[in-house]
Amino acid sequence: MDFAAFQSWFTLENIMELIRQYRSFGPLPGILLPMLEAFLPFLPLFLFVLANANAFGLWLGFLFSWIGAITGAFLVFLLVRKFGQRRVLVFLSRHPQVQKLMNWVERHGFGPLFLLMCFPFTPSAIINIVAGLSKISVAQYMLALTIGKMVMIFTISFVGYDLHSLVTKPLRSIIVAVIVFILWYAGKRIEIRMNKSMEKAHNGEVE
């Protein structure tokens, strides 16, 4: 089977059938598929989330997809952070575009990471690698990852589970938009407090 044929296999029906076949393992298939996407970014996270929402229901499907996605992304981040000085990753970190993105992430912290992780078609593997190579703190990264993926995966689950309601009940779409804003604002406030705490700790060490 060539790569094109392999990719063409990934349809909503095939993924849902795969989940049904391994339903005896409980939520494990629903968690492992999004987790695997963090290591193999050519896999369709969008379809995995839709399949989970349809196979397990909106809330359980969202929960399994969210757990799998943040676990996989965090593992990639930790691996890059731990082995970032190895030859391949050092070469990558010296690439001008990667350096620009790293500096941007380091300067702005939570904000850009949150926004990038909110969108389903951003290259999440690159974001995780760049975050791992940068000097952003683990706490900041986890905050952006947890909330950003929550927004993105819930939106896909919500849309895929009940597409008709977006047209017939526009109030639901407005509620989702408000929730996204509240989560972004809350994350930003938490980041500000974290930065102040780190500055106080650093000043205390200097003194």
Results as ranks from 00 to 15, higher is better:
42 F>G: 04
42 F>T: 07
42 F>C: 02
44 P>T: 03
44 P>E: 00
47 L>S: 03
49 V>P: 03
50 L>S: 04
50 L>H: 04
55 A>E: 09
57 G>V: 13
62 F>Q: 14
62 F>T: 14
62 F>K: 09
64 F>H: 09
65 S>F: 11
66 W>M: 14
66 W>Y: 13
70 I>Y: 10
70 I>H: 12
74 F>L: 13
75 L>R: 01
76 V>R: 05
77 F>R: 05
79 L>R: 02
80 V>I: 15
80 V>Q: 03
80 V>C: 07
81 R>V: 12
82 K>S: 14
82 K>N: 10
82 K>R: 15
83 F>T: 07
84 G>W: 10
85 Q>M: 15
85 Q>N: 14
86 R>C: 08
86 R>N: 12
86 R>E: 12
92 L>C: 08
93 S>K: 10
93 S>V: 04
96 P>S: 04
96 P>Y: 10
96 P>C: 05
97 Q>L: 09
99 Q>H: 13
100 K>N: 07
101 L>C: 02
103 N>D: 09
103 N>S: 11
104 W>F: 14
105 V>A: 04
106 E>T: 02
106 E>I: 02
107 R>A: 11
108 H>T: 00
109 G>P: 02
111 G>C: 04
112 P>V: 04
114 F>T: 01
115 L>C: 05
116 L>M: 06
116 L>T: 07
117 M>P: 02
118 C>S: 07
118 C>Q: 01
119 F>W: 11
122 T>L: 15
123 P>R: 10
125 A>C: 11
127 I>P: 04
128 N>S: 12
130 V>L: 13
130 V>E: 00
131 A>I: 07
132 G>K: 11
132 G>D: 10
133 L>P: 03
133 L>Y: 08
134 S>I: 03
136 I>F: 02
137 S>C: 03
140 Q>N: 10
143 L>Y: 05
144 A>F: 00
